[in-house]
Design a protein around this nucleic acid. Sequence first.
DNA 1: CGTTAGCACTCATCGCCTTGGAGTGCTAAC
DNA 2: GTTAGCACTCCAAGGCGATGAGTGCTAACG
Lengths: 344, 344
Amino acid sequence: MENLSTRHVRVLQAVVENYIRTGEPVGSRTLARSPGFKLSPATLRNVMADLEEYGYLCQPHTSAGRIPTDLGFRFYVNHLSGPSEIPSAAQRKIRERLEMSDGRLEEILHDGVLTLAQLTPYVGVVSLPDFRRMVVRHIRFVKLAGHRILAIIVALGGTVQNVLFESDTELSQDQLNRYSNYLNSLLGELTLNGVKRKILEEMAGDKRGYDELFAQVLALSQNLFQQKEVLGGDVMLDGKLNLLEHPEFADVERMKEIFKAFEEKGTILKILDDALEGEQLRVVIGSESHARELRHCSLVTAAYGRPGEVLGQVGVIGPTRMDYSRIIPLVNYLANVMSQRLTS
Amino acid sequence: MENLSTRHVRVLQAVVENYIRTGEPVGSRTLARSPGFKLSPATLRNVMADLEEYGYLCQPHTSAGRIPTDLGFRFYVNHLSGPSEIPSAAQRKIRERLEMSDGRLEEILHDGVLTLAQLTPYVGVVSLPDFRRMVVRHIRFVKLAGHRILAIIVALGGTVQNVLFESDTELSQDQLNRYSNYLNSLLGELTLNGVKRKILEEMAGDKRGYDELFAQVLALSQNLFQQKEVLGGDVMLDGKLNLLEHPEFADVERMKEIFKAFEEKGTILKILDDALEGEQLRVVIGSESHARELRHCSLVTAAYGRPGEVLGQVGVIGPTRMDYSRIIPLVNYLANVMSQRLTS
DNA sequence: CGTTAGCACTCATCGCCTTGGAGTGCTAAC
DNA sequence: GTTAGCACTCCAAGGCGATGAGTGCTAACG
């Protein structure tokens, strides 16, 4: 950092917090009046001019106060926003909501985003997990008409996902039962991907030579694994309406852009997927997302799943003027509860 | 009708069609210029004044042209909008889309609203069916952990719905198999409700005296029937973004109201459920819905299911200034294709 | 008697200007 | 280094008049 003095830092912090609170550009006068500042407006103007030069602040127009740039928010998030306490009411609500939800994966995720949408004035978002990475307790196949098969995948926490798919040949329920027994015998603490790998290894190792059962289970899994419910690659949103309450989105054009991003989902999914391996919590501020439509939005997301086995990301989307110090711990907490619910 | 002359009717029709096309209030001058009118603006003004008095037209302000009232649109829809042809491209798209979708109920419905959202500049909407009214081919129970059971309900058209629920006591898979065999033996051309009734009748008739199996299947069904996936009572929307393109929704406040109605769903569900028994197609114009938030919107919906067995309603929500003559046959067609897909 | 031309009137919209106020940068004094 | 003062910029809001679309009314016309 361009060797910011403590004074610079304090001013930056004050500007950011003021702006987060009011949504108005903050001027030297207001700042001087805020408690804890013994400096005159003129001095503050100098300091703020410095901060503008460094790129942390900017002015909407010449004679307005300053607002933080994305960089300014970034500095604030990285260095200035101490983790605040999560109100116990919010904690309780999160826990209750997630304990109440039935075991279907979608229901749990939905409850997660719903809770976020209710606890914050922003949009709750969650990416659907790649089921192939989940530790699976057992799989069951149910024959429907013709080639259609319903797979019921029960993951570690009792989470259930069912997937409809087709097999290449018509299989009887008996056959399906044998397949699923076989698959289940392989499942220990393995993920679906792990199972697949194991099958392939055993085949390659030629331990048992060519095995009819092997081949057919493999063929079946191939089809199963291609279904989008297994692949993930979708996001769920809730509380879009919340955004309409924020003055910065009063502009119809801007609103349209963002809602378009919400509807398409691809953009958001991409941002969520950008999360680095092993990164628990992530804040993407404004243009950091490199998505034009979301350049006025920030995302606070956390990975859910379990250590080393990330299933997806959950968090909120809001204006860059977001109450980071409140939201960050909240999202983090929710992700933890969700993780427990899904994998314990 | 207040004995409208053919002239009155022709003028009303012209005003409505003009307004639907342009979205602007239409004045006497523009009307006089439109082909087929040999009358002077002055005469038209008199006619329009009559129509205003009767309540079919109104003026946004004193010196603007006329726009149709809800009543005006109603008259137009009832008497003046001849059923137009559905472009074969649209027909093809609808058929292809619905044939492509896999057999899950939700997927089919989703494809339905998606298609509407793509073929029209409005919002596609569908109410989830009450599964109790569907003719069911068979039911299968799968035991999960503890008391949890997954019911797989396969309806007539191969549609699959799965429902997670809990039983009062822990049941083995064997027991569940017996139950489902028993249930399936009862299912002929019966709806779920029908099955329930039959069970109750047989019990009441005391044909077999007290039967353990009976009782337990009944208890199980009770729990199953309470699940929301079975009950229906939800709506699915798509293409909300389309509405943003319409000038009448450029106003943020109005937009908010409508989106709120979309998010809550209760309002919309209520309107859809208001459909009269046996009514195939329905047009609700503006305030006819008695829902404040939707007073600027019209709904065109059609029942899907099969004759005498309505499963739900599917259609579009748009501004009262909607292209009724195009939309009505379109929605009707889609409902028919959906019905076939679901029940044949 | 229905139709039409003419006219005075209304009202939203637009551009233009003014005013007020908030905030800035700069300079000079402390 | 800090601060007071001042000239300056610029947005927002309000007033004003011109414009133009459209109306209702009346009187003349065929």
